[in-house]
Amino acid sequence: MIQTFFNFDIIVASWPIVMAGLLNTVLLSLIVVPLGLFGGLLLALLASIRHPLVRWPLMAWVDFFRAFPPLVLLILLFAGLPFAGLDLGGFACVAIAFFLNTGAYYGEIFRAGIESIPAGQVEAARSTGLGRLQALGYIVLPQAVRNVMPDLLSNTLEVVKLTSLGSVVAVPELLYQARQAQSLTYNPTPIVVAAIIYFLMLWPLVRLLSRLENRALAGRR
């Protein structure tokens, strides 16, 4: 069994391939997480304009991406756009899809955070002469981010896991590389190794989250 699923020779042979994949997964995460955060912040700031003409389209936008599987979005960009003469390549498609999809999720989180700050905070800030944006940037956002930190981290965990979708459009990230190595060696060891790497990389975050979430829910009562 160990010979099959955790074969030492194959680990050694596939190590460079898998490591290259890990590097790309880390790089991809470092690009798509800030991208998603930026998109989310943009949405949340728009949502703080409490005008129905802004509110409803925004809510529709967010619900649309909550209902739409990210893989479908990715395939739509990757396989659909070329028919319109736009061939962006796997990497750009992943970036755009994540910007749209995870941006919507981050946006909901930021919005909830901003709404959790009592109006008195803004009033106090404005009363000392701070402008609307200054009040938002110095007073509201720092508190909002702290309030929704567990949700932000939880979504970030999901985003990093989601980078594995890149494998479907030939982005050479960890899962893609592991599958390449698997078909080269006719052995599942590289996939097992990839799974272990994912787990070791993300376990600390999962532990932290589980603590934060337990505390948050217990505190509601």
Partner: peptide, 27 residues
Amino acid sequence: IVFTVDLFRALPPLVIIVLIYFGLPYA
């Protein structure tokens, strides 16, 4: 239980699918 929960929270779903579909046949 806690370990099992952590495991399936940390692994990307696609990785689990690939493991089961492409990996388990070797066993």
